[in-house]
Design a protein around this nucleic acid. Structure first.
Lengths: 229, 229
DNA sequence: ACACAATATTGACAAATATCAATATTTATT
DNA sequence: AATAAATATTGATATTTGTCAATATTGTGT
């Protein structure tokens, strides 16, 4: 009889994820070959640098963002385990057009671009699954762009909370690993404004706040605020 | 001896474009089967509506945008002939997450999603070319998001002008089909601000303006302004 | 448990951009 | 060519959001 460490468990889930994408055992071995650990706050990739790898998130949480020269970030995606990062770099000008940072300590498999490309070209099922991911990424980006560019601050914050709750944590509780600053960057606002708007939402009983943890009490209200613009 | 109409010429170019994407003669016939004409200002697709088709632009110019409930648009892409629109709808929730409008009168081939999907699944070369387009779309969106969300108005307008000049018209002249409002929507600003900033750029000799036509005189200056943030 | 660092909060104020209104110019239509 | 419609321009003002500074709270490491 043997016992499983959390890492074994995680490996199994990763393999399952890759199997579902249509990868063979040997292909799975190839793409999980190189594993890197990132500490909280570390850069996973740097906007503007040469894009060598496609990455598979095995453990932890990442945020992806575009950054301006004054290092103000706009986060467009939070990534949870068993996701692929950097598909936008598979072709094109070979540079990351975004940056990515670890929100918690994280483990990432690095796959060389050419290796990833080879698998896509020879494995139809996998190519088709990757195209699904591209579709989703684009849809998500359109939604984020609409929120950040067309709405006022209250609606933006509601959009961010809805996104975190429904798409990322699949819970009405947004855990403390998400800071006020993360929500600010996700909403395209200053941190101080987030604090003020969260206080408004709290007094409207749309959310409750326990230390840093946010619980969504009235999702419908958030959605009404979101739509209002 | 026979003469060619502009339409014959255009058909030939369309077929060339599709051949380069790896489509066979019969596949080309399939995807060019249904052709629709849109007048200037007409909606090519409507944000939120059911996404039935992938579209191939054969003639004319389109703008794609996200729109809020007050009908304020943010344009993220201008499309020129021989481009594919709507790839983000190939999978996912079956609804357009963006709207698209004809800037000039345009001709568009409609391809049913399932038909398009079938070709992707059976034609590796085509799938690979489509993935290149996805990569480029994502990169373009990251760049637009960065501009709209992280920069001040002068830089935003410069980004829009650079985009139009380098990526779309491949000329230092931006033709009059692009209105001040189009530039405003592309920059995420109000039309009045575009007018003011264009006046600034003109007095700095970065551009010249003839009626509505804009000519870029000093691309380097625009790029410096763009970077400055 | 203590001290230090990081994050969150609050208020006052400044800056950027949108909005509104009036007018001019350009384009389209007859 | 004359008129109407659409687009562009300008100035004044309002609104929104960011910035700065001061303080409070929470988390971390010893």
């Amino acid at each position: 009889m043997r016992t499983f460490s959390p890492d074994d468990e995680n490996n199994k889930k990763l393999v399952d994820f890759l199997k579902k994408l249509g990868l063979s055992a040997s292909e799975i071995k190839t793409v999980t070959n190189t594993e890197i650990e990132f500490k909280k706050g570390e850069n996973v990739c740097k906007q503007g640098s040469f894009a060598s790898y496609i990455m598979i998130l095995k453990e932890g949480w990442l945020k992806s963002f575009v950054e301006n020269i004054h290092f103000k970030n706009t986060v467009f995606k939070i990534t949870k385990p068993f996701s692929i990062i950097g598909l936008s770099c598979l072709y094109g000008d070979n540079h990351y057009h975004f940056g990515c940072q670890a929100i918690t300590s994280s483990k990432v498999c690095l796959v060389e671009r050419v290796v990833f490309d080879d698998i896509i070209r020879t494995n139809n099922k996998f190519a088709s699954e990757i195209i699904k991911m591209y579709s989703n990424s684009l849809q998500n980006l359109y939604d984020r762009l609409n929120s950040i560019s067309n709405k006022q601050s209250l609606s933006k914050v509601c959009d961010s909370l809805i996104y975190l709750s429904e798409k990322i944590f699949e819970s009405n509780v947004i855990p403390i690993i998400i800071t006020r600053r993360d929500i600010a960057e996700l909403s395209g606002l200053a941190t101080e404004n987030i604090v003020r708007i969260l206080a408004e939402l709290k007094s409207a009983n749309a959310i409750s706040v326990n230390k840093k943890e946010i619980t969504i009490l009235d999702m419908d209200m958030l959605k009404r605020f979101s739509c209002f613009g």
